[in-house]
Design a binder for these strands. Sequence first.
DNA 1: TTGGTATATCGGGAAAAGCCGATATATCTT
DNA 2: AAGATATATCGGCTTTTCCCGATATACCAA
Lengths: 99, 99
Amino acid sequence: MDQVEIFKALSNKTRLQILNWLKEPELHFPEQKENGFEHGVCVGRIHQKAGLTQSTVSEYLTSLQRAGLVTATRAGQWTYYKRNEETFAALSRLIQSEI
Amino acid sequence: MDQVEIFKALSNKTRLQILNWLKEPELHFPEQKENGFEHGVCVGRIHQKAGLTQSTVSEYLTSLQRAGLVTATRAGQWTYYKRNEETFAALSRLIQSEI
DNA sequence: TTGGTATATCGGGAAAAGCCGATATATCTT
DNA sequence: AAGATATATCGGCTTTTCCCGATATACCAA
């Protein structure tokens, strides 16, 4: 758990936005409803909603993953990204006791 | 409470270090003991301990203050910086409920 | 195999952050 | 007023971040 890396990942409006969308995928990505959200949301939908290029969003998701804030699951041609709530909980604890 | 600004302020090893020192000033800045720590620690001592130039440390402290993570109190020729625990508590809550 | 779709990676230009040395400002002392 | 001390600000160089378009890679379908 690299603190600096986590805070850097969180230091961007779009990335915070993405994390927020992933809190309630059914609400923010209703198009994907039939496929379910067990593994999260695929890059393409996040890309469309974010209004940035595919490459930028892909890089953002990778950086969130490196920080441990999301997990990635490949399924066929899609990669699904999902929040990793444990990291958020750990970070919250860290802030009130360690930092 | 600008989330991005807070996370940017926390995205630096030295600044995290400073915040950590300020948790226990009497432990990390014993030289200042006779003056007390009610208003925190003055820039010069933090500068010496950090091993970066005075200007850099002054800028770092200003950025921590802008983020609301510390408060600054001027007393004579000294400026004392002190942790603002309310912001840390609020941030901790924010992470576990909002972000 | 060929082509289509989804994602990742690469190269790069612009903007911001990391630091520094020099200098300005504020305050105290004499 | 003049000098000393503490902090803030400014100009600049270097590294990193922000994004992009182009291209590569992976997978699927015919």
